[in-house]
Design a protein around this nucleic acid. Structure first.
Length: 730
DNA sequence: AGCACGCCGACT
DNA sequence: GTCGGCGTGCTC
């Protein structure tokens, strides 16, 4: 009887491939084992996801596996099941997900090398080669071990050389060698769980509402799976998470704790170590290979009870999981858009489910999608919201008024006299896009990205904010040759200048992508502000996600309504989130204050954020979603097609539209339209929005149509951390 | 993705 | 006849 293995590869392919398992590998070829298999003309590392004795369907010629790299699976079947569900839900490659779940020491791929043969060397010396072939041979002469096809291609200027190489291989000028992948993993030195858990004086925070966490704690203690949402402000929420971590660790379990950013993960791990006297591991995408390897080894030794990190930590091998926590649920950094696409918030719930652990998401300002589902399913744990102590003033401020209103100026002056620092937020760099042609009125646009260029006073230049393409601001209009004039707009640079006019003696630190382009520069700017050398800090969204910014006595938020202009059904939520996050930089004290200058003070997202009233925001937003049929009341998918050739892109997108419309009743097709970023580095982007009552309808439509469009495409689905609501949720 | 294959125009 | 670029389709 022949045994077959279903194998997935770390390639952007959704399908699995069937291979026959040679007798010698029978024992080792189990789900989760890494293998080398022939795929087309190459040898390719992959992962066994299933073993079966069912013969292949007709028309499929199975090949033998070449090698099984592990004598035991690199992860258990529950982890495999989790990644399988994740890949299916996000329509991303299972193999790519498994590849990212590999410790660095195992992530090496098989290498292919093109080497020059003796005949090739002779031909080169005799000059009997074409120009291109000669260049290739020259590159190989200096590389006796050969070059990978990719490296070779780069050395020859990046063009397609596959035809050339295969011809040269046929004529014996070059040979293509295959080098084996890395050997089996070294044996682990598993110590088993370390000594008794020491519950120090740690975790001093207590919950006001005793008992609300009881069901969650019971599930952790009993070792049951489950999912909950902890809603509340920072202090009670932290207390709740600490209580849950304590339960999980006391029960001998491991904790996976996801955070939106690196800094809180580091402090969480440090606090845990101090409190428990046990190891904790930090993991995030910016670590070096060596650091990742160390983290893996610590986890595999069994000494660490807690792993904290950003979205990539989702795949760490922790040992027996009891709790998967995700704080700051509203943060979009949990979403990975590039292949393999996945959402770590949904991933946390899926992983907990597969491994019999409890998943707990938390935030002080949940996405409405998560909140709605948590309520509907009875998963909401409200740990209480502490009122904000600082005062917030909303100033009605028309778009053409001076950048800094009288009101803000007055309060700034008072702050400065008290020696109290201030932070101003404005989400635009430079001077804003107000460069126009005096004759035809057009705004110059980036020739490659098709967005408005932004005037930067430094160097008197116009700069594209997507690709950094820059032109002289003194040039003539591209369209009519007229004179370009700079109309003063409102970017961070203009704010800085206005401040210099209003407060000539006060140094101002500007923190945006221009002024804070390097980590060193960022540190220097923030240190200057922290030490009081520059009592005013002006920043963009970049500042919001910066660790270690000291809180201020006054925070000014300028034109937050700008965010509402995005063509996205989540614009109000994004605005509420951004304004709330900026308000988080006000010192939590009765004498501290914030000023919001906006042309849309009546908009509920701005008003609710100003009032610190999540419920008010949620009530309005969920109603808006219901009325317009947006998630969570419908399932939505965004399909983005990309291509260099705009005409081909247009033809393909019309074709896709026709296919989608035929695909079924119950699918609403919006588009094609240019994506918000219509062109980046010469690649144009066209998007469709698909709306349907539920996810199954979307999948059916996409299954039958997407494979027929041969273009680079990405699909993003509406967000749902607890799983999709039923189609009739409305 | 990466690779083969086949087509076509350019060059010798 | 080569050579070299490019589009298309497949990989168990």
């Amino acid at each position: 009887m022949t045994v077959f293995a279903r194998v997935v590869f770390p390639l952007p392919l959704e399908q699995a491939f069937l291979y026959a398992v040679p007798e010698a590998f029978r024992e080792a070829a189990r789900p989760g084992a890494r293998v080398v298999a022939p795929l087309g003309a190459r040898r390719q590392n992959g992962f066994i996801v299933a073993v079966t004795d069912e013969p292949p369907a007709a028309g499929i010629k199975v090949k033998n596996l070449l090698q099984v790299l592990d004598d035991r699976p690199f992860r258990d079947e529950r982890f495999l099941e989790f990644t399988g569900r994740l890949s299916a839900e996000f329509r991303s490659s299972w193999g790519e997900i498994l590849q990212t779940a590999l410790p660095p020491s195992l992530s090496g791929k098989t290498r292919m090398a093109v080497v020059l043969t003796e005949a090739g060397r002779e031909a080169l010396e005799k000059g009997g080669l074409g120009p291109k072939a000669r260049l290739l041979a020259r590159a190989l002469v200096v590389a006796p071990k050969g070059l990978s096809p990719l490296a070779l291609r780069r050395r020859l200027g990046g063009g397609d050389i596959s035809g050339l190489v295969s011809r040269m291989e046929k004529t014996g000028l070059v040979a293509v060698e295959h080098k084996a992948g890395p050997g089996p993993r070294p044996d682990r030195d598993v110590e088993g769980a370390a000594g008794a858990v020491q519950l120090g004086l740690a975790f001093p925070e207590s919950l006001r509402q005793a008992g609300v966490l009881d069901p969650v704690e019971r599930a952790i203690v009993d070792g049951r799976a489950g999912a909950w949402y902890v809603f509340g402000s920072d202090r009670p929420r932290r207390a709740a998470f600490q209580a849950l971590v304590r339960r999980a660790v006391a029960a001998g379990g491991r904790v996976l704790f996801l955070q939106p950013e690196v800094a809180p993960s580091e402090s969480l791990a440090a606090g845990f170590k101090a409190d428990y006297g046990r190891q904790a591991v930090v993991f995030h995408g910016r670590m070096t290979g060596r650091q990742r390897e160390d983290a893996w080894r610590t986890l595999q030794s069994g000494r660490a009870a807690l792993a904290a990190g950003t979205r990539s930590a989702l795949f760490l091998e922790t040992g027996p999981l009891r709790l998967v926590a995700v704080d700051g649920e509203q943060e979009e950094s949990y979403l990975q858009a590039e292949s393999p696409a996945y959402d770590a918030r949904r991933g946390a719930v899926l992983r907990a489910e597969a491994e019999g652990a409890v998943a707990v998401l938390g935030s002080s300002r949940p996405t409405v999608e998560a909140m709605a589902e948590a309520r509907r399913r009875g998963l909401l744990v409200d740990v209480g919201t502490e009122p904000r102590r600082a005062a917030v003033t909303v100033v009605d401020h028309a778009g053409d008024a001076p950048i800094i209103s009288r009101e803000l100026e007055r309060r700034l002056r008072a702050r400065l006299e008290k020696g109290d620092p201030a932070i101003l937020f404005l989400n635009r760099r430079g001077y804003a896009a107000q460069v126009v042609c005096r004759t035809c009125g057009r705004t110059p646009r980036c020739p490659r990205c098709d967005i408005a260029l932004v005037y930067h006073k430094t160097g008197d230049r116009l700069i594209c904010h997507y690709c950094n393409h820059a032109v002289d601001a003194g040039r003539a209009c591209d369209k009519c040759g007229g004179e370009l004039v700079v109309r003063r707009g409102a970017g961070t640079q203009a704010v800085e200048e206005e401040l210099a006019r209003l407060f000539p003696k006060v140094p101002v630190a500007r923190f945006d992508a221009d002024a804070a382009s390097s980590p060193g520069e960022r540190e220097r700017l923030l240190a200057g502000f922290a030490k009081g050398q520059a009592p005013i800090l002006v920043g963009t969204q970049l500042l919001v996600h910066q660790p270690g910014v000291p809180k201020a006595g006054l925070v000014g938020i300028l034109r937050p309504e700008y965010l509402l202009g995005f063509s996205d059904y989540r614009a109000a939520q994004k605005t509420f989130e951004a304004v709330s996050a900026m308000l988080g930089f006000v010192r939590d004290a009765a004498d501290a204050e914030a000023v919001i200058q906006t042309a849309g003070p009546a908009h509920f997202a701005v008003a609710a954020a100003a009032a610190g009233d999540y419920e008010a925001f949620y009530g309005r937003e969920i109603e808006f979603r219901r009325v317009l049929g947006y998630p969570p009341f419908a399932a939505l998918a965004e399909v983005v097609l990309q291509g260099r050739d705009v005409r081909a892109l247009g033809a393909k997108s019309r074709e896709l539209r026709a296919l989608l419309q035929k695909a079924g009743p119950g699918i609403e097709v919006l588009g094609p339209a240019f994506a918000p970023v219509a062109r980046v580095r010469d690649v144009s982007r066209v998007q469709f929005i698909l709306k349907a009552a539920g996810r199954p309808e979307l999948d059916r439509a996409l299954d039958g149509t997407l494979p027929k469009i041969r273009l680079k495409k990405t699909v993003t689905f509406s967000y749902s951390p607890f799983g999709d609501p039923p189609s009739n949720a409305a």
